[in-house]
Design a protein around this nucleic acid. Structure first.
Length: 463
RNA sequence: UCCCCGAUAGCUCAGUCGGUAGAGCAACUGACUGUUAAUCAGUGGGUCGCAGGUUCAAGUCCUGCUCGGGGAGCCA
């Protein structure tokens, strides 16, 4: 097949000199045939742009079999193009069909709606938009690793299967090997002691608790792994399976944690500006309706994030010159409309809200001196909302146990989590960033189902 | 799960007061051209989401269901 010998379209287009007898392997995007000359544009996924092929139709009767979508193998000479829109093109010497493509191919030579493409998610990677997105996603995943590796963090693997039901981050998907038609029962309840693990187990909703164990051993760690939430959420920013990045740092307080968050977000934006120009220009031109995506990324890199305490945020909202559907008072959970007002209207930039009331945050967050608020931080960005949630963890064993009692939580199944507070406990902090939400923000793509190749949502696990 | 909106050709949509179906793009055929989302001319293409109901007559009105979109809650 000449896999190793072929020239990728990306490399052909970046060539500095002409080359004889190059091999191109790819899919036809469009064909233009006239009596004396014919053009094919071929794309192999290596880059957004197509490579133009030129030939005399009389010498290539196989042209009749070539449609949009056909996969082809080409041998020809790479020469500078006589046409205006591209520097290089290939004068074809040999052309063969690898796989034909009947004309009922769903991807037409025209723009399609994101909604339609979502229904054919197995084919949409072949479109310009999803080619750009999937290459961007790969590059950003690499940038995530690069950021942490450069700073001496260790990449850790936390379990996908978990037995802790107290992670508290949402509904969980149960896993079992039971024959669901005859589940063993005891005293009217499912007898999980007969199940594979001898207890009830689920897919993880967060690697944080385990990450804390590793952080209190090897210092600075991060996870980057799939996460599962069984919430019946039907919104443009929720999926049941998504990828989350969760750093955890020993000997680190909330203020230091926030510096890592800000540096991380800025790093990803700077990385995209430096290394993903083609993708960012595409998003700016075709995806972001206000055409300000590049400018937004540049602003993030330049400007300081806003920091406001929950209590101050409430005051700002109370003074706001506009009505909210949900009334504002200290102690409420901030609603979407409140978060949007803060980040989009009041501060007009990414915002960190800190020190939330303990009652609306998780049990493991460190109690402040006031006894009412905890060392939590949510990062809000325009258009997407919450993109990062983090906190300083409660490292004082007695305080943590007291808090769990308040919440009627049993400590039995989570003794292992308490143990790191028993022996050599240290202040530590961390956060979780939704990878897809970050991709949404950076690309301007407004539905999370369009930044992951195969989205899982209530009622839909196709492909 | 709740609220709102929608479902008509392959895609995006129009369809008036209820009277038996339209456009653009795509596809196909032909012509022409170093073209480039080519251009020009022509052709084919419909169980109007599904199931009921009202009516002489339903794409159009009513009910239920399914699916999709926007918003809310939950959160990353």
């Amino acid at each position: 097949m000449h896999y190793f010998e072929r020239l990728k379209v990306k490399d052909a287009l970046m060539s500095t000199v002409g080359q004889e007898d190059v091999i191109i392997l790819g899919w036809v995007r469009t064909k233009r045939v006239s009596k004396n000359i014919a053009f094919i544009e071929v794309n192999d996924g290596s880059t957004l742009s197509n490579l133009q092929l030129v030939m005399e139709p009389d010498n290539f009767p196989v042209l009749d079999e070539i449609n949009t979508g056909t996969s082809i193998k080409v041998v020809g000479d790479l020469v500078s193009s006589q046409g205006g829109k591209q520097a290089w093109e290939v004068v074809v010497k040999k052309l063969e069909v690898v796989g034909d493509c009947p004309t009922d191919y769903p991807l037409q030579k025209k723009r399609h709606s994101m909604e339609f493409l979502r229904e054919i998610a197995h084919l949409r990677p072949r479109t310009n938009t999803y080619g750009v997105l999937n290459r961007f996603r790969s590059k950003l995943a690499y940038a995530v690793h690069q950021f942490y590796q450069e700073r001496g963090f260790y990449y850790i693997h936390t379990p996908i299967i978990t037995a802790s039901d107290c992670e508290g981050a949402g509904e969980m998907f149960r896993i079992t090997t039971f024959d669901l038609d005859k589940v063993p029962m005891i005293d009217g309840h499912v007898d999980f002691s007969q199940d594979f693990f001898g207890q009830e187990t689920s897919l993880t909703v967060s690697g944080q608790l385990e990450a804390e164990l590793l952080a209190t051993a090897i210092g600075d760690v991060y996870t980057f792994s799939p996460t599962f939430r069984a919430e019946n959420s039907n919104t443009s920013r929720h999926v049941a399976e998504f990828w989350m990045i969760e750093p955890e740092m020993a000997f680190c307080d909330l203020e230091e944690n926030m510096k890592v968050i800000e540096a991380f977000l800025k790093y990803l934006c700077q990385y995209a500006l430096d290394n993903c120009q083609e993708e960012m220009e595409f998003f700016n031109k075709w995806v972001d309706q206000s055409h300000t995506r590049i400018q937004t990324m540049e602003n993030i890199v330049k400007s300081e994030f806003g920091i406001v305490s929950y209590t101050e945020a409430i005051k700002i909202l109370e003074k706001a010159d506009r009505k909210f559907d949900f009334s504002v008072e200290w102690g409420i959970d901030l609603q979407s409309e409140h978060e949007r007002y803060l980040t989009e209207d009041h501060f007009k930039r990414p915002m960190m809200v800190i020190d939330y009331p303990k009652d609306i945050k998780a049990f493991y967050m460190r109690m402040n001196e006031d006894g009412k608020t905890v060392r939590a931080v949510d990062v809000l960005v325009p258009q997407v909302g919450e993109i990062v949630g983090g906190s300083q963890r409660e490292e004082r064993l007695d305080v943590l146990i007291e808090r769990m009692k308040e919440l009627n939580m049993t400590t039995e199944e989570i003794e292992w989590y308490l143990d790191i507070r028993r022996w050599g406990s240290v202040p530590h902090s961390g956060f979780g960033m939704g990878f897809e939400r970050m991709l949404m923000y950076m690309s301007g793509i407004s539905n999370i189902r369009d930044v992951i190749p195969f989205p899982r949502t209530p009622g839909n696990a196709k492909f």
